[in-house]
Every structure is written in structure tokens, then in C-alpha cells.
């Protein structure tokens, strides 16, 4: 969806740093260092909190069911005792739905990104490193996959295979594989002919060893920080699939599906659609900020 091409994201982590002035006071330097740290630790802390909330909390505390409620508890407002994020019109606890929906989002985000990264690298690195006809062929295939509207493919697969979490993972991977493939290829191409690569080859290192020992360590930072954006993007797409009803099958909770059902009672109960929307937004913001901060750090390393 409306997220830039991987190269574009990678090349513009908030632009080049301003040239340092020689007359910067100590306090300013300390403040700058603090904010640099904060840019990494605040989103990371938030993500850890979210993961804790989604995966650990329901094992420790007994939450209300995310699928069943009693109509008697219906339409609770925010901060109702026992339902601090309220309930929907049939009395299902909103917070509980957020927690279980979040599990699904994170699981799918991680799985799709991992699949995209592994298969994408398996295609992109050899293509970029070897060049020639293999590269042309693989690049064309990636081009086709990228020109194919991702959503359509995902929907068609979900529709053909039936909605389930595993099918959704495969459907969304169709999008993440070419994205990572193209990025892996571009970064491999960028390092392939650097002098130290030539030096390594002349020192006798050959074939797969070059890829494993020289290429991968040098392109990994870019790929890893992009993978955080990838998780965010997947969570967005997953939400869209759920919203359209092609994602997680119904009684199970998911953020996108919460948005879809909340849309119907938007005028009376705006919080029911706002809460999952905000969770979706803030989670992705945190992922993107963390990715940006990592890139900033590794870029200087």
C-alpha cells in the first residue's frame, strides 16, 4: 500500500545529518546524544511492552473472552471497571480483542517478513552477485510480482484457499518476497564490486564463502532495519485483508476486523473503531521509528 519502494525508504532515513557546527555547547551535544538514544529506546521499549501485552499478559492474567460476551455488558464506554477499553455492542471486551488480535498481527508480521527475507535473499543475492542472464530472468520475475497488485494476489489466494492465519501468511508473503528480493539484489549489486570484495577474491576466498562471509554481513544491516518496516507494512496489509473479510476467520479477533465491525457503529460508538485504529497506527509508527534508528546507528558503524 502507500509505502515507498524499499530503496526509497532506505535512502532517506530523514535525510542527511546537518553539518555539525564547531560552536556547539556541551549542553547541546548532551541533548543531542540523549535524543539519539531516545529515538532508539522509546520505540523499542514500546514494542517490548506491546509484545508483553499480547503474548505474556494473557498467560498471567485471566482476560475476558475475546470472542464471547454477554449482551448485558454491551456498549460499555471506555474505562468501565472490568472492561477498561469498553465493550462492543454484544459485550465482547475490547482490550481482550486488542490483545488477541495483536497476537495475530505480530505473528503474521514476523512470519511474512521472515519468509520474505529468506526467500527474497535466496533469489536476490545470487541474482545480484552472479549477474548475467540469471539476474535478468530473476529480476523480471520480481518485476512481475511487484507490478501485480499485491492486494489482489493476496485476496485471490485467501479466497482460493479459504481464510486462515496460515493462508494469510502465504498470501502476504507473495508481496514480501519480491520486495526483499529486490532490496537484496540492489544491496548485493552495490557491494559486489567494492575493492574489498575484489581483495577477498584475490586472497583466495571463493564462491559461497564470499557470499556468506562478505556479502551477507555487509548487506545485513540494511535488510534487518528494512525488515522492521516490513513487519509494519505487513501488519497494515493484514489489517486491510481482515477489514475486507478475507483474513482471519470471524469469531477470532483481529484489528482489521474490529475496524470493519466498528465502522458500522461509528456514529454511536466511535471509540470502538478508534481503539484498534490507534493501536495499528502506533505499533507501526514504533516499528518504523525503531527501524530508522537502527539504520542511523548501523549507517555510522
Amino acid at each position: 500500500m502507500a509505502v515507498p519502494t524499499p530503496d526509497a525508504v532506505l535512502l532517506t532515513p530523514g535525510g542527511p545529518p546537518a553539518l555539525p557546527s564547531l560552536l556547539v555547547s556541551d549542553r547541546r551535544i548532551r541533548a543531542q546524544r540523549f535524543w539519539r538514544g531516545a529515538r532508539l529506546w522509546i520505540p523499542l521499549g514500546f514494542l517490548i511492552l506491546m509484545l508483553f501485552m499480547c503474548f505474556v499478559l494473557p498467560r498471567v492474567v485471566t482476560l475476558p473472552s475475546p470472542t464471547n460476551g454477554t449482551i448485558l455488558d454491551g456498549n460499555d464506554a471506555l474505562f468501565t471497571p472490568g472492561h477498561w477499553l469498553g465493550t462492543n455492542n454484544v459485550g465482547v471486551d475490547t482490550f481482550s480483542q486488542i490483545v488477541y488480535g495483536g497476537q495475530v498481527s505480530f505473528e503474521i508480521g514476523a512470519a511474512v517478513t521472515a519468509i520474505g527475507m529468506i526467500i527474497g535473499c535466496a533469489i536476490g543475492i545470487p541474482a545480484g552477485y552472479l549477474g548475467g542472464w540469471a539476474d535478468s530472468l530473476l529480476s523480471r520475475i520480481l518485476d512481475v510480482l511487484l507490478a501485480f497488485p499485491a492486494l489482489v494476489l493476496a485476496l485471490a489466494i485467501a479466497e482460493g484457499l479459504g481464510p486462515s492465519e496460515v493462508h494469510e501468511i502465504w498470501a502476504l508473503s507473495v508481496f514480501s518476497i519480491p520486495t526483499f528480493g529486490r532490496l537484496a539484489r540492489a544491496s548485493t549489486l552495490a557491494v559486489r564490486d567494492l575493492p574489498f570484495m575484489t581483495a577477498a577474491r584475490l586472497s583466495g576466498t571463493r564462491g559461497w564463502r564470499i557470499i556468506v562471509r562478505h556479502v551477507i554481513p555487509n548487506i545485513a544491516p540494511g535488510l534487518v532495519s528494512f525488515s522492521l518496516l516490513g513487519v509494519g507494512l505487513t501488519i497494515i496489509l493484514e489489517g486491510a485483508l481482515d477489514y475486507l473479510g478475507w483474513g482471519i476467520p470471524l469469531p477470532e479477533a483481529s484489528w482489521g476486523q474490529m475496524i470493519a465491525s466498528g465502522q458500522n457503529i461509528m456514529s454511536a460508538q466511535p471509540q470502538y473503531v478508534l481503539v484498534p485504529s490507534l493501536f495499528l497506527l502506533v505499533t507501526v509508527v514504533a516499528l518504523n521509528m525503531f527501524g530508522d534508528a537502527l539504520r542511523e546507528r548501523w549507517g555510522e558503524a
Binding site: L194, P195, F196, T198, A199, A200, L202, S203, H214, P217, N218
Partner: peptide
């Protein structure tokens, strides 16, 4: 064996 011009460029960072 060989020694190239750019000392940093020819060592894997």
C-alpha cells in the same frame, strides 16, 4: 599478491 590504493576500501569494514 597485491596491495591496492585505498587502504580502507580493500578491507572488509
Amino acid at each position: 599478491q597485491f596491495v591496492f590504493q585505498d587502504p580502507f576500501g580493500s578491507l572488509d569494514p
